[in-house]
Design a protein around this nucleic acid. Structure first.
Lengths: 341, 341
DNA sequence: ACTGATCATGAAAACGCTATCATAAAATTA
DNA sequence: TAATTTTATGATAGCGTTTTCATGATCAGT
């Protein structure tokens, strides 16, 4: 690899002048510039970024740490974040963490390795933050979860009110006349436990305190947060508890899998059994029947995340903890049931 | 930010000794080590990676350049690559490029900025490589396309034989008795033109040289490579050419959208119209009816990509250009049509 | 107690670059 | 022509590390 010193020697000028050419400084004579540029081209010279950064204490682009590759919802958020960043003229850099990794401990390593201007956490669990986050010295946002109780002064958070939204979801089923409602959940390991736990407890509480007849051991089936997970769980739950008339899936991925699992096992949706999901992933509008779901406002979530991070990167500002609204999306996967009970 | 010098001063030792502690060298007395480690902890000191890298001429992790965020197929490949890299103990770094970006020109910037050990291109078009690739000095792989004709000695490529696979896809429709077959395509801008063009010409040629009655202007509808694109295109094409009995969609995303578009417009799949896709994305097995498709061997593609890159990163090896096998996946979206024509 | 080996530590050079300052040459002005 | 400004360039001091080499202290063996 050629260095600036080589270019200087070969072109007959000093490294200072070569540096000026590299950085397009004005005070270089055209003739000199041309010679040096030719040598640079000939040698295929690329200035060493580490040296440059060391001197200038520069930073890398905002890094987004995604835990759980393959999660369509997170990918949709990521896509929106990328668009927003692009609009602000910022580029991004994404690191996918293994599901098993401790989100923040790994993130600290990444910070050390790349020195990013800012950090966005996508899909990590709150619990990961309790211990290790203090070492993170960079403006950060938790884009899917509520970090207000942690009280860190460089970690904002934006999230849907998962507890209330899940309660709303089952409420919609109750409104439609359903009294025997099952829940398809997520294993803690494969799904950020806080969000999963919030949705689960939101739904369970709403059912137990409402007019429905709900017994967790009988009517709840945990599963991997995936298509396959939903497919299997729906079948297993209905085999165990055949009198259910509706299912709440803790995520759309699970719901789409469940839809197919039900259909493959001879259940008609929604005539035999209704289904509602959670998240509002793009595919949810393209299933047959179209999936009813709780749609998180992905683009607002991304917009607020980017706005806050950029603001705090450039000015001294307090962190923010906001709740993003959600919407019920009607679908053909819910049938009205005339109360026969 | 504390530097190693601060730690040295505060602990009363020299920077050399502090460096030895940081790097877990053996020749430091336990007492000294403890003192220095305490100071490091107190000061929340993180060694500056740029300085470290400069001294050691280290490199950043393999960087994957993905053009076209939101493309489910590429995300599936990405997921497999990440798994394979993880198995080899390598971490990765992903940069999502705007659709409009020139893949290689951007890559050069990334190299300048990050100095990665290796580079994987996902979803970029071959044409992007013709001009700028010479400046890329790093072992690289084009994971979705054939770069053999370019003859670069640091760019391997792995790809499905898109031309032949697309021909096979329509052949399956012909085998099932269809003679009036439409094609749902992709706009060059939103889909790597080479792959799109290959699939299109493969399908068109197979139809024109086969027993089918195909007229491109009448039976082909270009569309964005997205669910929405397929949804609209299917409707438009059938409005224009109502006597089609089968559709080949140039990608599963388009096919899934088409499925819904057809159903929403009163067509039954497959009784009224058959559909076959291309790619083999996970969602394709969860549609109703299940989508017939040409499945690329995503995990093999990822495996070979990673193997080759790692090998060439560590040893002097010639580049490889391999074709990855593909499979026809049966689905309920194709009906057998008894030749009435 | 005296030599030679071992150990813990410090001093300083180097990594490749940028930026400041100094300086010689050229251009402008009086 | 002398005095002044402008311009192009070179020399050099860092940036924060690692690493080599040198040095003084401790230790074992006679």
């Amino acid at each position: 690899m050629a260095t600036i010193k080589d270019i200087a020697k070969l072109s007959g000028f000093s490294i200072g002048t070569v540096s000026r050419v590299i950085n397009n400084r004005a005070d270089v004579s055209p003739a000199t510039r041309e010679i040096i540029e030719r040598v640079i081209r000939e040698q295929n010279f690329q200035p060493n970024t580490n040296a440059k950064r060391l001197k200038q204490t520069m930073f890398s682009p905002v890094t987004i740490i995604v835990k759980g590759i393959g999660n369509t919802f997170l990918e949709a958020v990521l896509e929106e974040i990328q668009i927003n960043m692009y609009l602000h003229g910022e580029s991004i850099n994404v690191t996918f963490l293994d599901e098993r990794a401790n989100c923040v401990a790994e993130a600290v390593k990444i910070i050390a390795a790349q020195n990013p201007k800012g950090l966005i956490f996508l899909g990590g669990s709150i619990n990961n933050f309790r211990k290790d986050f203090k070492a993170v010295q960079v403006p950060s946002v938790l884009a899917t979860g509520n970090a207000s109780m942690l009280g860190y002064d460089n970690l904002s958070s934006f999230t849907t009110d998962d507890y209330r939204a899940a309660a709303d979801a089952v409420e919609h089923l109750v409104q439609a006349g359903h009294r025997r409602i099952g829940i398809l959940g997520g294993y803690p390991e494969s799904w950020p436990e806080d969000i999963g736990a919030l949705r689960l407890s939101g739904a369970v509480n709403a059912l137990e305190s409402g007019h429905a007849d709900f017994v967790k051991d009988r009517d709840y089936e945990p599963c991997a947060f995936s298509l396959q997970g939903g497919y299997n769980a729906a079948r297993n739950l209905l085999r165990r508890t055949p009198d259910l008339t509706a299912l709440f899936a803790i995520g759309d991925l699970v719901a789409v899998g469940a839809l197919k699992g039900l259909q493959d096992n001879g259940y008609r949706v929604p005539q035999d059994i209704s289904v509602i999901g959670f998240d509002g992933i793009p595919f949810a509008s393209y299933t047959n029947p179209r999936l009813a779901t709780i749609k998180q406002d992905i683009s607002l979530l991304a917009k607020r995340t980017v706005e806050d991070l950029l603001l705090r990167m450039n000015y001294q500002r307090p962190v923010l903890h906001e709740t993003i609204p959600y919407y019920f999306v009607e679908g053909e996967s819910i049938a009205v049931r005339h109360s026969s009970v």
